[in-house]
Design a protein around this nucleic acid. Structure first.
Length: 414
DNA sequence: TGTCCACTGGAAGGGAGGGCTT
DNA sequence: AAGCCCTCCCTTCCAGTGGACA
């Protein structure tokens, strides 16, 4: 049995191109963050009062995806932890990181923060069941007992605000009103520059006591970042000279996103290795680029709920019928037919409109509101996913019966 | 200038599901 | 077991909207 294990062939495979893949991950925090020294200094300066037990100002960090916001904040956080561990004379502080894209409910955020503070497993907070008031009073208690400055980083903070409003700030800042020994400072990270408009004016001024803007990287800066990582990650000489400039140029076009540049480099190396090639070349980068695009949308489509899939399927059907631009009403008409055929409950047009907006936000479709005069005002919808993803949707088991039914009736398949 | 269309999008609330407390 | 809480998904209601048209 063990002789035929499917993984046997990979067991003794040595890396031929990359010696340390971890370094090419965008989540990896390197020792050195090129072109962000000024931002590191700025944040460190603002947070430094924590070392003398004073509450630092709250910070709001704004910048596009892949501009190093999270990496810089975590870097500063790690440094802060190190100095607290090494130097028992300084006031102790805690650095807590929560990604609001992963946990986006007020309860989830508070639960996450508390359980990072609580060390005793028996005292951990249950992931559901408590009221917000209860979790908040528990949090106030443990924060006060710890006698520290707490720096709480809320990454992708706009996600939570869009969904739940700014309650979470009331909760967190209210802790400071009660505690005497400990205080909480909030570091909010967002890639939405208009995010503060969503906030109550009082909260807005409180949260953005200090505002730091992260500009996108230019080609030269992206090159430096990639060279820096490649030096550590790759076996010497395994990457063509033109690969990094090419990756940097592509990513600079896409808003100076370092995360994308690293993904591109990593994927290119993966493809070269899997292909058994001796070196990474520009051809691998080109291939990696299209693969990343397909993978990203495929991943999103996979996680859609059944109802969203039906809405997307209806848009695909309409497009196959020749409707390049379709209206909400067109989608809803097709949607109802599909639902009836696959025995799924039909949602209201209001809800389907909401699902269409969600698909737009996920980048699967383009939906813009347009007025057609007497013909009304509605969304104009355009499908923008690659062919491979469309095939994945139409191949979903949810629609097998629908397509079989259609073919029996000898109408166009899709 | 007012009317009309086909929605949009906000607000409020219902109900199911998961889990805690008493 | 009953009561409570939070989240998610959904419905219902309704004011608002942009632009063609009379």
């Amino acid at each position: 049995m063990s002789e035929t294990n499917i993984f046997n062939q990979y067991m003794n495979k040595t890396n031929t191109i990359v010696k340390n893949k971890k370094i090419l991950q965008s989540t990896y925090v390197p020792e050195n963050l090129p072109h962000r020294d000024d931002k590191i200094g700025e944040i460190a300066e603002i947070l430094s009062p924590a070392l003398s037990n004073d509450k630092p100002s709250n910070i709001l960090i704004i910048g596009k995806t892949g501009t190093g916001k999270t990496a810089v904040v975590n870097f500063v956080g790690n440094e802060l932890k190190k100095i607290c561990e090494m130097n028992k004379d300084v006031s102790q502080c805690a650095f807590i990181y929560v990604n609001c894209e992963v946990v986006d409910t007020p309860y989830g955020i508070l639960y996450n923060i508390c359980n990072q503070i609580i060390t005793d497993p028996a005292k951990k907070i249950p992931f559901t069941g408590w009221s917000i008031e209860k979790i908040l009073s528990e949090m106030t208690k443990i924060v006060e007992e710890e006698n520290k400055i707490f720096i709480i980083v809320l990454d992708e903070i706009d996600r939570s605000i869009q969904k739940n409003g700014d309650d979470i700030f009331y909760y967190l800042t209210s802790v400071n009103d009660v505690t005497k020994n400990s205080k909480i400072s909030i570091v909010g990270i967002t890639n939405n520059s208009k995010f503060t408009e969503l906030l109550d004016t009082k909260i807005r001024s409180r949260l953005s006591e200090e505002k730091i803007i992260f500009p996108p990287y230019n080609v030269e800066q992206l090159k430096d970042i990639l060279y820096d990582r490649a030096k550590e990650a790759f076996i010497e000489g395994m990457i063509n000279d033109d690969v990094i400039p090419y990756c940097a140029a592509l990513s600079a076009q896409e808003m100076g996103d370092a995360r994308k540049a690293l993904d591109l480099l990593r994927m290119s190396a993966d493809l070269a290795e899997r292909n058994g090639d001796s070196k990474v070349t520009v051809a691998h980068v080109k291939l990696a680029r299209s693969k990343i695009e397909v993978d990203a949308t495929t991943e999103i489509v996979k996680t859609l709920t059944d109802q969203s899939k039906v809405v997307l399927f209806s848009i695909i059907l309409n497009k196959e019928k020749g409707m390049e631009f379709q209206k909400t009403g067109d989608v809803y008409t097709t949607y109802k037919i599909v639902c009836e055929n696959i025995d799924m409950s039909v949602l209201t047009q209001r809800r389907v409109g909401g699902l269409i907006s969600e698909l737009d936000m996920l980048g699967i479709i383009h939906a813009r509101v347009k007025s057609f005069g007497k013909a009304g005002r509605t969304k104009e919808i355009e499908l923008i996913i690659p062919k491979e993803t469309i095939q994945m949707v139409t191949g979903d088991e949810l629609f097998v019966n629908y397509l079989n039914h259609k073919s029996r009736k000898q109408t166009t398949l899709i």
